[in-house]
Write a protein that binds this DNA or RNA. Structure first.
Lengths: 206, 206
DNA sequence: AAATTGTGTTTTGTATACAAAACACAATTA
DNA sequence: TAATTGTGTTTTGTATACAAAACACAATTT
């Protein structure tokens, strides 16, 4: 048997990936024995992983019926973006108050490769964008805030792996947020972070 | 055996109560077999309940070591209050935008019994306060927002079941929030909701 | 034909069994 | 005496077993 301290961890990651890449489709029922057989584990650690995914809004449990891959309707996507506006907005505020040079440096590093390019590699920019938004939370060093920010998982599931808006539009917005943080302008940092997400929300919701 | 569809649900509620009322103390290790024997259930549904509590920040798992009742230090309390400011602030904003009479009515109902009293029953006011803050979130009808607002659990654990500030101080603040919502003033509603929590945070953190 | 009932199968929820890791503490060594 | 090793116990993590609920679908009734 393989070495491990906690089998549910790799199962959790694997399932998350399966949901992301479509091996498990939206709304699909997750038959526990099938998956446990597929992954070569028992139902016990699988259950643990599924519960973690349920708490991240990726999976939905209906008692006595089973676990299902969550499928999001328009209202839920709207609501999730509202949450993101609250969380990321606050994160930007916290970072602006911190005024830590190392923080600014890391944030800037995300988009440095694109600032001088005229033709932006979409794939690379998508990864940078994801990284930036996750970093914004992590750098606050606020563990509870990080804990409630699990919607990043859902983010690209919603849009089918792509960006909601083109880099030409968002690159500048990202730098506006970073600059406000650098200048220690908390109100502006929060405002820009929110507007950035709000614009995508409005676009997704019509 | 007792009728049920999901045994982990009552176990979850029982454990939450045990943490609240001190039957399980901060930092205490939760020995699974002990608790499962105490509650007359097996470890399987108990584990399910413990995982739910872990995701609510009430319990902490250290792999291969066990589950422990989470004990919060000053920084964590501070960080949780930052989260509450973000979440409740946004909730107040959403409700203000909604401008739903029924919403305002329910919020007002929380504190109506106290508005004319000169001597406020502390116990009743504490319950009303809890209800108000929970209601603020629920009435947004934003399920993801509700999902990330599990810190209410922790709130009175932190303060040892009491209020951080006296009713004489907070009652007026509550009405300011409600009035802003009633008037559809989103910016003010959010601002007042935040300041209300911020004041307690500052008090707790010195 | 549509609705209902019955029956065998699947799947969940719970209990239990068991190996391996963590722990406690006495015996041993430096 | 302080540190280390060894040994028996406890506890976790995982697998498995089993009852009851959900399901699928054929047979029966209206």
């Amino acid at each position: 048997m393989i070495e491990h301290t906690d089998l549910s961890q790799p199962i959790y990651l694997r399932l998350k990936d399966m949901i992301r890449n479509g091996e498990l489709k939206q709304g699909e029922k997750i038959v526990q024995e099938k998956i446990s057989e597929l992954l070569g584990v028992s139902r016990t650690p699988l259950m643990k992983a599924l519960l973690a995914l349920e708490n991240e809004y990726l999976v939905e449990s209906i008692p006595r019926r089973g676990m299902f891959v969550r499928s999001l309707d328009e209202k839920e996507i709207f609501d999730i973006y509202i949450c993101r506006e609250a969380i990321e907005g606050m994160a930007a505020r916290v970072l602006a108050i911190k005024k830590d040079e190392a923080v600014v440096k890391q944030l800037k590093a995300c988009f440095m490769p694109f600032s001088s390019q005229s033709n932006i590699d979409l794939d690379a920019y998508t990864r940078a964008d994801e990284h930036f938004h996750s970093l914004l939370i992590k750098l606050t060093n606020n563990a509870p805030l990080d804990k409630i920010y699990f919607f990043s998982n859902i983010h690209d599931k919603v849009t089918g792996h792509g960006l909601v808006r083109p880099p030409e539009e968002t690159l500048h917005e990202h730098f506006k947020i970073i600059n406000a943080i650098e200048n220690g302008n908390a109100d502006q940092a929060e405002k820009y972070a929110r507007e950035h997400i709000e614009k995508s929300r409005i676009l997704l919701n019509k």
